[in-house]
Design a protein around this nucleic acid. Structure first.
Lengths: 145, 145
DNA sequence: TATTGTTATACTCTATAACTATA
DNA sequence: TATAGTTATAGAGTATAACAATA
């Protein structure tokens, strides 16, 4: 009966608790009125760093190129992205946000993230929000490792 | 061009960054040799708090009862759980870990969480690990809110 | 031959709807 | 009627394998 109240903060125990809470967090996020979270993430990435090839997006989002092709097809059908031929390399296609994509992204920024932002605002103190913000930075480092 | 280096740590910005890093973290976790993460989570929950009904597990894992039924069927086919009739209520079925389930859980505890624990150990200082452990507690509070 | 991208197929996870059995 | 549980079906997300087009 391993107890979590007296844990020595060892990496293994942090890892297991982090896995568990992240799984629950993903479900809470997905349960909210939303359009598909991964599609949102791709739009967000294009908005953040500009038009990208499918391969580059796959690397950035940590998925296989085939998986990204599937997501891009869905975004294309929804009219949220536009594809542009690469000026010199005929194999590559640059993916950009369409006007509708930008509108959708801005709307989702307000609506989707709403529940999570409100939960942070209402359940954490200012100091705790700082701790969470710091942890997000630490998690980014771990993900990129 | 919203800049993240000078962010005022507002809840909305924390929420969006948290969403993004959590999505990447899930993919990093899933990319590692593993058996299905949610199945692992269910075994872990039963181990932590003892045999439960399917409905109770659905509440704890934040999924619908039908989704839990599906996961339990997979765990049953794998031989990782056993089902026991409720002593007084014929509608209920208590779900317990089988011997194979315990073996699988212990093995996955070592193997699956391995990458994440190593990444935490290698990429964070002791203080940063404390920050992350604190953040996990804060996230638990948010998820349960 | 190597790279970029796509299509085909399958599996995990989750949902809603509809059903059965028991209280 | 209400509750516990299951089955049927569908969609998001991801993977591997196989293929086409371009460099």
């Amino acid at each position: 009966m391993e107890d979590t109240t007296t844990r020595p903060a060892g990496s293994v125990l942090i890892a297991e608790d982090l896995r568990a809470v992240v799984a629950l967090l993903v479900r809470r996020i997905r349960a909210n009125p939303a359009f598909p979270p991964h599609q949102f993430g791709v739009l967000r990435t294009i908005d953040r760093i500009g038009p990208q090839t499918a391969s580059q997006l796959a690397v950035l989002e940590l998925v296989r190129p085939q998986s990204m092709a599937h997501t891009l097809q869905q975004l294309d059908e929804a009219g949220y992205i536009s594809r542009h031929a690469h000026p010199t390399d005929g194999r590559q296609t640059l993916i950009a946000l369409s006007d509708d994509g930008r509108i959708a992204l801005d709307q989702q920024r307000r609506e989707i993230t709403g529940w999570l932002a409100a939960a942070i605002e209402e359940n954490l103190t200012a100091d705790e929000r700082d701790t969470l913000a710091d942890a997000v930075t630490l998690l980014s480092r771990i993900v990129e490792a």
